[in-house]
């Protein structure tokens, strides 16, 4: 087996980087601070380079669809065309190029909010279909949802008592529940981190 496929190497790198970050968070040690800064910059760079990996993955899958004339292959061809166009304009023209600016303002920044707008429709169908009162807990969920929707809707403020009750739901039971979950989540993250740093969490590691 290749040395790069061994589990020990990623575990050692993870443990070294992870423990260094923990030390840097609590203590002022110039050497550790400079090494951890370097590791952070590496992490940002690797993440940035991974975009190329994503583009390659996307390119391979969609080029294969076009080549084999699979169903809706022309949509894959359109995706590849737009992806290449944005890459060329972004790299050679930079983000200040008029064509990049035009595509950003008229395509990207209009399509993005439109996708978010879809959520209003999904929210409507989910409210009709999914918020069923099957138990006392789901009844409480529905009542809380209605109160908080009234609180979020500006008009809710004119219904007497709604703001007071909804604010109480938001500030007391909601905050208490959120804090409990946050505490559990933080402890869960610490536990997972320890398992990862010690190499016990193996799901992402090569066999």
């Amino acid at each position: 087996m290749s040395i790069f496929k061994r589990r020990e190497i990623p575990v050692i790198i993870t443990a070294f980087s992870g423990f260094l970050m923990v030390i840097e968070y609590f203590f002022t040690i110039p050497l550790v601070a400079s090494i951890s800064t370097g590791i952070r910059e590496w992490a940002s760079l690797i993440a940035a380079f991974a975009v190329g990996l994503g583009a390659t993955n996307l390119g391979i899958i969609h080029a294969s669809r076009v080549r084999h004339r699979r169903e809706n292959w022309y949509l894959s061809a359109w995706l590849l065309f737009v992806m290449v166009l944005m890459i060329i304009v972004g790299i050679f023209g930079t983000t200040k190029h008029p064509l990049y600016d035009f595509l950003f303002a008229n395509v990207y920044s209009t399509v993005g909010p439109t996708m978010w707008g879809l959520l209003a429709f999904y929210l409507a169908s989910a409210s009709f279909r999914a918020l069923r009162v099957r138990s006392l807990e789901s009844l409480l969920l529905l009542i809380s949802a209605i109160l908080l929707m009234l609180l979020s809707a500006p008009i809710g403020g004119i219904i007497p008592g709604v703001t007071v009750v909804a604010n109480w739901v938001q500030n007391v039971p909601n905050t208490a529940g959120m804090r409990g979950i946050l505490l559990g989540t933080a402890l869960g993250a610490i536990g997972l981190s320890i398992r990862t740093l010690l190499g016990y969490e193996k799901g992402y590691l090569p066999e």
């Binding site: 979950i181 505490l183 559990g184 402890l187 993250a189 398992r195 969490e201």
Partner: peptide, 29 residues
């Protein structure tokens, strides 16, 4: 929800060592 997500891998692995680490988290709680 919450920490159930973090412990999912450990629970599914049925690895006693990973399961032990979950018990340790309860001390924090």
């Amino acid at each position: 929800f919450g920490e159930e997500v973090y412990v999912a891998g450990a629970v599914l692995s049925e690895d006693p060592i990973q399961l032990g680490s979950i018990a340790g988290q309860d001390v924090g709680k």
